[in-house]
Amino acid sequence: MKYIFYVGILILGACKQQPQEPQIQFQNPSNFPEPHYNLSRNPVTTEGFKLGKMLFFDSILSRDGTISCGSCHIQSSAFTQHGHDLSHGIDDQLTLRNAPPIMNLAWQKEFFWDGGVFDLDLFALAPIEAHNEMDESIANVLNKLRKHPKYPQMFERAFGTSEITLDRFLKALSQFQLMAISANSKYDKYIRNEGVTLTTDELAGLELFKVKCSSCHQGELFTDLSYRNNGMIPQRFKLNGIDTIDTGRERITLNPNDQFKFKVPSLRNVEITRPYMHNGSLRTLEQVLDHYQTGVKDHPTLDPVLKQNGKLGIDLTNDEKKKIIEFLKTLTDEEFLKNPILSEENP
């Protein structure tokens, strides 16, 4: 079965006289499960998406107008802050963690490395109000938008009313983020039988990955969305002058059994989202594989998968590691990274 697959975006033929206005529509990639996000509550529309995109790239959301969501979430790096282990926010303060990609969020249940936010619509409040990110009050953001020459009109187009409420603001931001769908990697085209084949090494890597990694990095999203300790024991460090240790999921549940557990990340576009892990402490995929082979640290909450028969880590040869990396690179989705519809340069 052959068919052309668009990244959830249909470019409908518009009249020839006018410049083509892409129509935005959420579509579920055929190899993905059903989204977790309730789209009937906030259907993605062209105007809602456009508003959300403008907000996402607008530094009006920060106290001093210097930082936008897009400052830390850059499209060409799958919406991460490329090259930074910890993200840089307002006044060049550091964040606690490495910025994860904004990608396939409709299929996520909880957000942040520790899952502290359980609804995408609630998410934007966190970076806006965090003192080391945008350091602005949400009430103030809404007031700035109400006085803005363009926003009231854009809300009118998106929601049928120019009245700017928290609910509509958050929903518009969600609409943009929901459309950041990555499902057109080489791997996807192979899986969907779209005439693409994997090399022998890539295929061998895929098979190894299924055996060694997919118990956690599961399914088409490459995560089972659970919280686990993969043996990266965090160290104490000074964050903006304050002695800190990142206890992970325990921060949210206050349950000591959750200490040092972090959300299993998706591995889509992993080739270009370095550095890796919640604290960005591993710089390359080779280092990640070395970690699983020999770097896993024991701890009472270490995932049992990484300590089988009393042996720490995952059994891997150097050749197997290379093949797994070859496979991981097939998850890079150039169409997503260059999708003009998501691009800041293309408002």
């Binding site: 502290g116 936010v117 609804d119 965090a130 009430a139 928290l166 609910d167 929903k171």
Partner: peptide
């Protein structure tokens, strides 16, 4: 606490009356 934002208006509006009475990092 777990209802959609649209059902948390009035005294529960995080951008209004309830400003400062919400943990955004731990909903």
């Amino acid at each position: 606490n777990t209802k959609p934002v649209g059902e948390r208006t009035g005294n529960l509006d995080i951008s209004g009356t309830a400003q400062g009475m919400y943990w955004s990092w731990n909903s």
